[in-house]
Every structure is written in C-alpha cells, then in structure tokens.
C-alpha cells in the first residue's frame, strides 16, 4: 500500500444556508482554503470525488453543477458517490492506491434545511413495508436508544453526559450550530422530543459543506509539514431492517475497526454519532477505551451537515495530527438509519 495522508481540510456549517442547493457558491471559498493550505492549484489535483444526495436537494442530478466550483474546463478526473463524502474520500484513497494519481480533493455538501430532513430520510427505508408509515430518523434512533436503556447498557445520565461534553466542546468550534454546555441535571430537566430522546440528544439540522485533500508520499510532505498519514481505512455495512441486527451494538463498526487492525493507541477520536447514545454504541464497537478523547470538535451533536459530517470527522481528527496534539487519531463516518454503515479512518503523525 502507498503512504497516503490527509493534508488539507476546510468546512462551513450553518443552520440555514440561503443559497442554491448545489452549493457551488459555498464550495468556492472552501476549495480556496484547501489551495491555500496546500499551496496547490486546481491543476495539482489528480482526482476529484464528491458526496451528496438528490433527495436532500429535491432534484435529480443535483451534484452536476456543484463541480462548477472546481472550474472544470479543462475537464477533470472526477467521480461522485450518493453517500457521505467520507466514502468519496475512500474512493479517492483507492484511486491513489492504484497508482493512477498522487493527489485528490474530495468534498461533500448538503442543504438539509431545504426540506423537512427527518421526513425526507424516511425515504431511505424499505419502500414497501416501512416508508408508507413515514417513520422518521429520529424515531428510529429513539427505538434504538430505548433498547439500550431497557437492557441496562446505558442510562439517561450517560446520554446527558455525552451531550454536555459535546456542547461544552462545541463552544470552541466556530462552525457549531448548537453549543453551550450546562449540566446533566439541567439537560435531564428538559422535555422529551422522541421519548427517550430529548432534542439535544439529536443532531441539529445543519447545512454545510467540507473538503479534504489527500496526497501520497512526497506530495503529502510537500503540502503539509506534518501530514496525517492514513494507517488504515475501511468500512462495512449492516442490513437496514431493524429486526435483523442487534441495534445496541454495531457489527459494521466492529468489522471496520478490525479491518484497520484495531484502534490501539488512538488518542483522539472524532465519531460521527448523530444521536447521543450512538456515541456509546460506537465507542464500544470501535474498542475505544476511557482514555481516548472523543469529539473535541463537539461532534455531530453540535453540527451535522448531511453528506459532509462524516468527512468533517476525518478532517477534525487530522487537524490534531497536523498541530501535534496527537500522534494517532481516528475519524469515523456513518450513513443510513441507526448506524447502518460505518467507516473508520485511522491517521498517524510520523
């Protein structure tokens, strides 16, 4: 395998983006920041890959005008996944591994506020036996949360502690759309939204976009003084149907962690947990001990832009390598209802 590193990362997150659903105008400054960080220009990028969703935008081919933000004449080597940009990053990593290119820029974007997000996401379910009932994502997560509560795997306090830590950390994140810690008692005094979950247990609806630059070997060292070398990246999927998997754990997260050779030595992990209890599920499935610092960015409970939030976890983790805070970090992304798909990216400073 070639040595490939994360060498650039830029993001924007907000409650309510007032521009177009293709978000080209939001991507322009994000790509600009990536060029500035790496000292590169468009022509230095060997491969481009993005992640987004037509249903989030409310129209077919919503991604085609997003690539205008790159400036695509002359044409570029480019692909797109209908997934979080973390999987676009995976496709780009593959492309670099084939030896065809040495550098790649991946991006994700989504304007969740254009529709009613939790209702739109009901279209991700089985179209014959589930979607006609329009179960929303929050309810599916709530069913998952209660299974763990009933089984004694976690309690209300544990959920509130996750929220309190996340929103406290979010105070230092300029892109957080929800921030401000209080106390477990105060959080538990708030009303239920989707019993047993309160609003603060659920990621806020967020618009946003993000981009990450990858590079191999010397190209990485040229762009970044301390690249975040990807020592392992893998993903896996579970079935969607709630009856066919144990919702209190995450088989796909466990398999992804095993595929990267485990998580020993990870000091900081950014987990894409859109619901508070899911952080507990992931922490255990990924084998992250109590000494691992979780989500210093505030995580998805502070901002969760669909189709870029997973990539943002990888970018936030990589920053901790760049600035020397840590030598080994983990970025995680999820997709689908109740943690159906999970991707793990372990990065190291050398």
């Amino acid at each position: 395998m070639r040595d490939v590193a994360v060498v650039g990362f830029a993001q924007r997150q907000m409650k309510d983006f007032d521009g177009s659903p293709s978000m080209a105008e939001l991507l322009v400054p994000i790509l600009g920041e990536c060029y500035e960080q790496t000292g590169w220009q468009k022509k230095d990028i060997g491969f481009w890959c993005s992640g987004s969703s037509d249903y989030l935008a409310g129209r077919s081919f919503s991604f085609v005008s997003a690539i205008d933000a790159i400036g695509v004449l002359p044409p570029v080597n480019e692909s797109h996944v209908e997934m979080d940009a973390a999987w676009a990053l995976y496709e780009a990593w593959l492309k670099i591994q084939t030896g065809e290119v040495d550098t790649a820029l991946v991006f994700g974007f989504g304007k969740a506020s254009a529709g009613v997000l939790r209702r739109t996401l009901a279209l991700q379910l089985d179209p014959y036996t589930m979607t006609p009932l329009w179960p929303d994502t929050v309810c599916l997560a709530a069913l998952q949360a209660r299974l763990g509560l009933d089984a004694g795997l976690w309690d209300e306090n544990a959920l509130a502690e996750v929220v309190n830590r996340s929103l406290t950390d979010a105070e230092k994140n300029e892109y957080a759309v929800r921030a401000g810690g209080s106390s477990v008692e105060e959080l538990l005094a708030r009303p239920m939204f989707a019993d047993p979950l309160r609003k603060h247990d659920c990621a806020p609806v967020t618009d946003g976009a993000a981009a990450i630059v990858l590079a191999a070997g010397d190209r990485a060292r040229e762009a970044n003084q301390r690249p975040a070398w990807i020592s392992g990246i893998a993903h896996s999927s579970d079935g969607l149907h709630l009856g066919t998997r144990d919702l209190t754990t995450s088989g796909s997260a466990e398999r992804a962690a095993a595929a990267v050779g485990g998580t020993d030595g990870v000091q900081i992990a950014e987990l894409h947990a859109p619901f508070s209890h899911q952080e507990l599920v992931l922490r255990s499935a990924l084998g992250l001990g109590e000494d691992v610092r979780l989500n210093p960015s505030g995580g998805a409970l502070a901002a969760n832009p669909m189709f870029s939030a997973g990539a943002i976890r990888i970018g936030e983790a990589a920053k901790k390598i760049w600035d020397g805070t840590a030598d080994k970090v983990l970025g995680h992304a999820t997709s689908g209802p109740a943690l159906q798909q999970n991707l793990v990216c372990v990065m190291e400073g050398r």
């Binding site: 009613v116 209702r119 329009w134 929303d136 069913l143 998952q144 209660r146 299974l147 989707a194 019993d195």
Partner: peptide, 11 residues
C-alpha cells in the same frame, strides 16, 4: 421498544 412521536410529520 417504543418511542413517542411528539411532533408528527406529514404522512
């Protein structure tokens, strides 16, 4: 398992 839908959405 169960959850309470406090703010139903259309459909």
């Amino acid at each position: 398992s169960w959850t309470w839908v406090s703010e139903p959405v259309a459909g």
